Simulated assay, not measured.
Amino acid sequence: MTLRRPFRFSQVDVFSAHGLLGNPLAVVHDAEGLDEETLARFARWTNLSETTFLLPPTDPAADYRVRIFTTGGELPFAGHPTLGSAHAWLEAGGVPRRADRVVQECGVGLVPVARRERLAFAAPQLLRSGGVEPGRAGEVLAALGLSPSQVVGMAWVDNGPGWVGVELGSAEQVLAVEPVLALSSQLKVGIIGRWPDPAAGGKDVEVRAFYGDGTDFAEDPVTGSLNAGLAQWLIGAGRLPARYVAGQGARRRRDGRVHVEQREGQIWIGGDTVTTVSGTVSL
């Protein structure tokens, strides 16, 4: 019989100030000693978009190390797990080397997380950017049920998960998209469009995120990595301002808010974080 032991556990709602409206993240603290199969099995069992495991850093410049798992495998980086993990680490008594920021070590390297009005991570460099090859662009349009005339722009905005970004003419168009075909497991697609009157709903743009396994598709509630990539693309191209708020999750009956800001050439992705579950888990 395999000996199991308790680990401290948190479930954090990310990109929501009130809880239950953002994207939940499962966090296992002090996870050293757990083998990779156990990490993957627990991530599948939570059935959340991501589960993270906090570990001692291997880089002396980092405050902690995190491994990020989806139900299908490990990711080198993801946005809402970065904010949620930093929140959980701090709430558990973690003391960062610098009072104004936490430094996370993950698959893409070191990611600074600023401690301001809300936690905000520095967007990592894009691993792939620029135009999308015609065959892949056609696959994206077919999957989302879009015609080329509806698309303002399309680009790779991949910072680890494999995102392709698609800009549509309006937020209303974004909310109206009804995917019709499954995306391949190697492809994740985010769509973005502007609201005509941001003051009315507190949102400048609306974002949605889709991913698939070749036979089906799913929609992520609120997605930090995608918003980081979209900001790098569209602020860099002069099509979005240096500071804006993205709404995401409406079609999933969520109300996420992603606070985007460019400071001295660096994109920061911020969001509120609230612990909704805390206790222990036996692994």
Results as ranks from 00 to 15, higher is better:
residue 273 T to S: 12
residue 224 G to T: 08
residue 24 P to F: 05
residue 176 A to F: 11
residue 93 G to F: 13
residue 67 R to F: 09
residue 213 D to C: 04
residue 263 R to A: 12
residue 118 R to H: 13
residue 177 V to F: 08
residue 167 E to S: 09
residue 180 V to Y: 11
residue 164 V to N: 05
residue 194 R to H: 13
residue 271 G to V: 06
residue 218 A to L: 14
residue 167 E to T: 11
residue 71 T to A: 15
residue 119 L to Y: 06
residue 177 V to T: 01
residue 260 V to S: 03
residue 93 G to E: 12
residue 175 L to C: 08
residue 211 Y to D: 01
residue 226 L to N: 04
residue 158 D to Q: 08
residue 62 A to I: 01
residue 250 A to N: 07
residue 159 N to C: 13
residue 44 R to Y: 14
residue 214 G to A: 02
residue 215 T to Q: 15
residue 89 W to V: 00
residue 279 G to S: 12
residue 187 L to E: 02
residue 212 G to Q: 04
residue 68 I to Q: 00
residue 144 L to G: 00
residue 43 A to V: 06
residue 161 P to G: 01
residue 183 L to W: 12
residue 214 G to W: 05
residue 250 A to Q: 04
residue 231 A to T: 14
residue 255 D to I: 02
residue 112 P to L: 07
residue 97 R to W: 04
residue 220 D to A: 05
residue 103 V to Y: 10
residue 194 R to E: 15
residue 76 P to D: 12
residue 244 Y to K: 07
residue 136 R to G: 06
residue 57 P to M: 02
residue 81 P to C: 01
residue 120 A to Q: 07
residue 107 G to M: 02
residue 274 V to K: 12
residue 269 I to S: 02
residue 204 D to V: 12
residue 225 S to C: 02
residue 247 G to D: 10
residue 31 A to K: 02
residue 106 C to I: 05
residue 166 V to M: 04
residue 179 P to V: 11
residue 205 V to T: 13
residue 217 F to W: 14
residue 142 A to L: 14
residue 182 A to C: 12
residue 2 T to A: 13
residue 171 A to K: 06
residue 195 W to K: 12
residue 181 L to G: 01
residue 278 S to C: 08
residue 166 V to Y: 09
residue 34 L to Q: 07
residue 245 V to I: 13
residue 279 G to H: 14
residue 225 S to R: 03
residue 112 P to N: 08
residue 166 V to C: 01
residue 67 R to L: 10
residue 249 G to D: 03
residue 4 R to H: 12
residue 181 L to V: 04
residue 143 A to I: 08
residue 217 F to D: 01
residue 281 V to G: 00
residue 157 V to R: 00
residue 36 E to A: 15
residue 264 E to P: 07
residue 10 S to H: 12
residue 205 V to Q: 10
residue 61 A to W: 05
residue 264 E to M: 09
residue 142 A to C: 11
residue 210 F to T: 01
residue 144 L to W: 09
residue 219 E to S: 03
residue 233 W to T: 01
residue 243 R to V: 14
residue 140 V to I: 15
residue 227 N to K: 08
residue 171 A to F: 07
residue 200 A to Q: 14
residue 253 R to H: 08
residue 34 L to P: 00
residue 175 L to K: 05
residue 135 G to F: 12
residue 85 S to N: 03
residue 38 T to Y: 08
residue 10 S to Y: 14
residue 98 R to A: 15
residue 78 A to M: 05
residue 256 G to A: 05
residue 14 V to C: 01
residue 276 T to S: 12
residue 134 P to Y: 14
residue 247 G to F: 13
residue 12 V to E: 06
residue 146 L to Q: 02
residue 146 L to Y: 13
residue 17 A to I: 06
residue 146 L to D: 04
residue 249 G to T: 00
residue 158 D to F: 08
residue 2 T to W: 09
residue 241 P to W: 10
residue 104 Q to L: 00
residue 235 I to N: 03
residue 19 G to Q: 07
residue 45 W to D: 11
residue 154 M to I: 14
residue 132 V to G: 07
residue 77 F to D: 00
residue 17 A to D: 14
residue 105 E to W: 06
residue 17 A to F: 13
residue 17 A to C: 09
residue 237 A to T: 10
residue 188 K to A: 03
residue 251 R to Q: 13
residue 229 G to Y: 09
residue 58 T to S: 11
residue 42 F to T: 01
residue 253 R to L: 11
residue 107 G to H: 07
residue 57 P to G: 02
residue 222 V to K: 05
residue 270 G to S: 10
residue 251 R to H: 05
residue 7 F to K: 06
residue 231 A to I: 09
residue 62 A to L: 02
residue 33 G to K: 14
residue 127 L to T: 11
